[in-house]
């Protein structure tokens, strides 16, 4: 008998969206965004290590409205990914799997990430 691939399970497109599934997808997306965003952190650090002129250029770009927008998005991605990580620690320890608990954890992560983002920006930028 010739070998053939095992059947694959159906993918995302056929499922109804649930909050845990959505948060899982966003966890991956924010992880990818933070991965790319680290480049901007390193550019800033390298410019600061290099010279005042280089740092001036970086500060000008990062201080623009587009830079601020990216930084705001980065702040939320950071907090969302952090909350996702904490949720996974809870699950890795074997807690929070009951119906209702899973959803509560996912919603809590989303709410806390938004609150923390607004808190940091309100206190340190807007005030």
């Amino acid at each position: 008998m010739s070998a053939r691939p095992r059947p694959l399970s159906p993918h995302l497109t056929i499922y109804r969206f649930t909050i845990t599934m959505t948060m899982s997808i966003i966890h991956r997306i924010t992880g990818g965004a933070l991965y790319v965003g680290t480049l901007f952190l390193v550019i800033w650090l390298a410019a600061a290590a290099w010279s005042q002129q280089a740092l001036d250029v970086v500060n000008l770009v990062y201080g623009s409205w587009l830079g601020a927008l990216v930084l705001f998005g980065y702040t939320w991605a950071l907090f969302h990914h952090l909350m996702g990580g904490l949720r996974h620690f809870v699950w890795d320890l074997g807690y929070g799997f009951e119906p209702g608990q899973r959803e509560a954890l996912a919603w809590a992560g989303l709410v806390v990430s938004i609150v923390l983002t607004l808190l940091v920006w309100t206190i340190f930028v807007w005030m």
């Binding site: 201080g63 950071l78 952090l82 996974h88 620690f89 940091v120 340190f124």
Partner: peptide, 26 residues
């Protein structure tokens, strides 16, 4: 998972440093 735990600390450091030094000179 170990690096994830360490990253909790990193996040606190990062927010502290960026908040203090955003737009700062050398």
């Amino acid at each position: 998972r170990l690096s994830g735990a360490s990253n909790i600390l990193f996040t606190i450091f990062l927010v502290f440093i960026v908040v203090r030094l955003a737009g700062a000179d050398r």
